[in-house]
């Protein structure tokens, strides 16, 4: 492993460096994916542009109706942020099962998204929150829904020299809750066999589903939203039977592979169970808020 390491002082400088050394340059933040990929000879960058210390990019900002997470926000910061303890629990649940403690202290959420692993733990909860990604590049700033930002395994909509700056999502209405579930062979330092996030909002005074967003990781080439399962539940009562049907529909919509971690059949079965359980957890959390 050998490369030149650059330490830009600003996003603009980082973009300049990336342009100057393209195509052999790569941004690196926490390095928990990049360094492994270099070691395993999957990538061979000549220039690493270290953006980990860029100022103002690791803040969690709350406004009246939205949250903005700087791309360099560490998982540890998400795990411990008081604003995510109520109806944004999925973020903390996902952040707390990424790697181990050492990884979570250094790895960034922006890196997790840009790495675009189908099994990325932090992507499903952000998809379930309908998050957007802000980018900066040689041609200025732009923004994209996360769902479109991730194009395929390891592939994003980032243009050359573009860098992710923020991730944004709207606050949830009343009677909303989120949940995240992960299955794998062990309880830490684990790549998800399947991970599922759910975001459920109930109507003001009924137990009918007003809004449902589901997101599933590691069960298709990129994390996805099972639209049929979501629309099936809309306006329906939040019942165990309906949640189970949503799980079944989500499993049907998934297209998992068989690999050394699990078979496609087991992954699909997990999707059904986990979607149902994530929705049940959301419902339970809404009931707790109601009380």
């Amino acid at each position: 492993m050998s490369f030149d390491l650059h330490r830009p002082a600003s996003v603009t400088e980082a973009i300049d460096l990336a342009q100057r050394f393209a195509p052999t340059a790569r941004y690196v933040a926490g390095g928990t994916d990049t360094v492994i990929q270099i070691n395993r000879k999957k990538i061979d960058p000549v220039h690493l542009i270290d953006v980990a210390c860029l100022p103002g990019m690791s803040e969690i900002t709350e406004t009246a109706d939205a949250f903005t997470l700087g791309a360099l926000t560490r998982y540890r910061a998400i795990e411990t942020h008081p604003a995510f303890r109520v109806n944004l629990r999925a973020l903390q649940e996902a952040a707390s099962v990424v790697g181990g403690h050492q990884v979570r202290n250094i790895a960034t959420i922006g890196g997790n998204i840009v790495n675009a692993s189908p099994a990325a733990d932090f992507v499903p909860p952000l998809l379930a929150l309908d998050a957007s990604v802000d980018m900066a590049g040689p041609n200025g700033q732009r923004s994209s829904p996360l769902l479109n930002f991730i194009v395929g395994p390891g592939k994003t909509a980032l243009l050359p020299a573009e860098i992710v700056t923020n991730i944004r999502f709207a606050k949830l209405p009343a009677r909303s809750a989120t949940a995240f579930l992960k299955e794998g062979r062990r309880r830490a330092m684990e790549i998800s066999v399947v991970c599922v996030a759910a975001c459920l909002t109930l109507e003001a005074s009924t137990s009918r589903c007003a809004s449902v967003r589901l997101a599933i990781g590691a069960a298709s080439p990129k994390a996805f939203r099972p639209e049929q399962a979501e629309s099936y539940l809309l306006g329906q009562s939040a019942s165990k039977e309906n949640f189970a049907e949503a799980g079944r529909l989500a499993a049907e919509a998934s297209s998992p592979i068989s690999d050394v971690r699990a078979s496609a059949g087991y992954r699909r079965a997990l999707v059904a169970v986990m979607v149902e359980r994530a929705l049940e957890t959301c419902l339970q959390r809404i009931r707790e808020q109601d009380q």
Partner: peptide, 13 residues
């Protein structure tokens, strides 16, 4: 052939 997919238990397990 890597320690990601060769699953030794962690302290959590």
């Amino acid at each position: 052939a890597n320690l990601t997919d060769y699953k030794m238990p962690t302290a959590m397990d």
